[in-house]
Design a protein around this nucleic acid. Sequence first.
DNA 1: TTTGGTGCAAAATTTTTGCAGGCTA
DNA 2: TAGCCTGCAAAAATTTTGCACCAAA
Lengths: 153, 153
Amino acid sequence: MNESLFRQMLKEKGLKVTAQRLLVLELMAAHPGEHLTVEDIHALARERYPKIGLATIYRTVQVLVELKLLDKISFDDGYARFELAKLPGEENKGHHHHHAICLGCGRVLPFEEDLLDTLEQSLMERLGFAVTDHEVKLFGYCRSCREEKKTDI
Amino acid sequence: MNESLFRQMLKEKGLKVTAQRLLVLELMAAHPGEHLTVEDIHALARERYPKIGLATIYRTVQVLVELKLLDKISFDDGYARFELAKLPGEENKGHHHHHAICLGCGRVLPFEEDLLDTLEQSLMERLGFAVTDHEVKLFGYCRSCREEKKTDI
DNA sequence: TTTGGTGCAAAATTTTTGCAGGCTA
DNA sequence: TAGCCTGCAAAAATTTTGCACCAAA
């Protein structure tokens, strides 16, 4: 993520560039593919800026989601999670990446793939619903859980 | 949903058949395709059984999810939502149904389709991840929002 | 009668909000 | 300087837990 681009995006929205906002974005960029809760982000931010408040993290991720710099995702475990969105240049080719969630160990494997075109086309034809983005979660068992537990699925 | 099957499922788990559990399942069966929050369910349940407690609803949906009679879903709006799962006989052909969420009006259109087989096969081959279930959310604009706002997407 | 369930209230969690002071533009 | 932002604390909102009493098996 380009810092000056971020400054520009904030300016366009009439928002101010603050050390806290820069820090949170930088932290998220340093942890790609992870799915951090607000608490996680707060803990990371405190390492560098101990007096940062939790409310600031909540307000900052909200801003970053609005700017489409972060995606909000939920694994239905009671926590809202956030991850870095694609870079502005990439956002046209395909949507987000998706998540394969292991029911054995809870690990989350991100993967890229865009095989939903047919489905989206059919939705448009049948229901008149125009898809602009999608989110796919797969549930199952990862290799190591399958080997460990000798589960044949 | 067959009541005697439900009684049997509870018995197998060493759980008791109570009026509250029967009521919640019946309510969920009477509202297929809706995505009810715990509050929604509580309000419905109170119409027939005014003294039922909110904690009972929380505990009951938890049991029903464990029995795979309900699915827990989240639209990232801060509420956990529940809906009736497929009937036991149907559960082998395909997984859940999916959701097309309109960004204009918030309406949720459920749809059935199973076009992820190729994707799931490739995950197995490339990552050794065995998919047992999946959940797909599509975001976009429904027909009436598109007509209303004359958005061409 | 034994075991688990319910209802109520309290507690725990996660998230939002109000406000005084501080920083950005 | 004007207005937005932060930190702190209080408040909301959602979910969980403890416990005495009740009900199912």
